[in-house]
Simulated assay, not measured.
Amino acid sequence: MLALVGACSASSPPAPVQSLTTQCGQTRPQVCTMEYDPVCGELADGGREDYSSPCNACAHDAVAAYRRGGCESGGTGE
């Protein structure tokens, strides 16, 4: 006979789900390093565009937020 014992606790809340989108701050970067860490910038008008790093995405006033990795489709690149 096989018995499975679960380690659930009724008092523990589920782990919070982190948002995949990071909002750009109101203060925009003036200078960015040459780091390559591709992101998909989400434009305030609803479009998307690929950027080489979070800093480069948020340096553009048109970008409201970004997600790690490139845009799946439609990005124009940087």
Rank of each mutant, 00 (worst) to 15 (best):
V31T: 12
E72H: 09
G77Q: 00
P29S: 09
G77T: 08
V63T: 08
P54E: 05
G74M: 04
E35M: 07
P29Y: 06
A3L: 09
Q26M: 12
A15Y: 07
C71T: 02
G46P: 02
V63F: 01
A65Q: 05
C55N: 03
S9R: 12
S52I: 14
R48E: 03
L4V: 15
D45M: 06
N56W: 00
E49S: 15
S12F: 10
T76F: 14
V17T: 14
C71D: 01
L2M: 09
S53H: 08
G46S: 08
P16S: 07
A3Y: 05
G6S: 15
S11C: 00
C55T: 03
S52Q: 15
A64Y: 02
E78F: 13
M34C: 00
L4T: 15
S9H: 06
D61K: 01
R67E: 11
V31D: 03
S9K: 07
A59N: 13
V39F: 04
P14Y: 11
A15P: 01
H60S: 13
M34K: 08
G77V: 10
R67K: 09
P38L: 09
S11K: 07
E49A: 14
P13C: 08
A59P: 12
Q26V: 11
G41V: 02
M1P: 12
S12L: 12
R68G: 07
V5S: 01
L20Q: 15
P29A: 06
T27I: 15
G6W: 13
T22Q: 11
R67L: 04
G77M: 07
S73R: 00
C32A: 07
G69R: 08
S11M: 00
S11V: 07
Q26L: 15
P54C: 05
Q18P: 02
S53Y: 10
N56D: 00
G75C: 10
S12I: 14
V5C: 00
A15C: 00
G6M: 14
E78V: 10
G6N: 11
Y36P: 06
M34V: 10
T21M: 09
C55F: 05
C24H: 03
A7W: 13
T21H: 05
G25D: 10
T22V: 09
Y51I: 01
T27N: 13
S12R: 15
D61N: 02
C58V: 10
D45S: 09
R48L: 05
M34Y: 08
C40N: 01
L20M: 15
S19I: 06
V5W: 01
A65W: 03
A15S: 08
G47P: 06
V31F: 07
C24G: 09
G6H: 11
C58L: 12
S11G: 06
S19H: 12
T76Q: 14
M1N: 13
T21S: 11
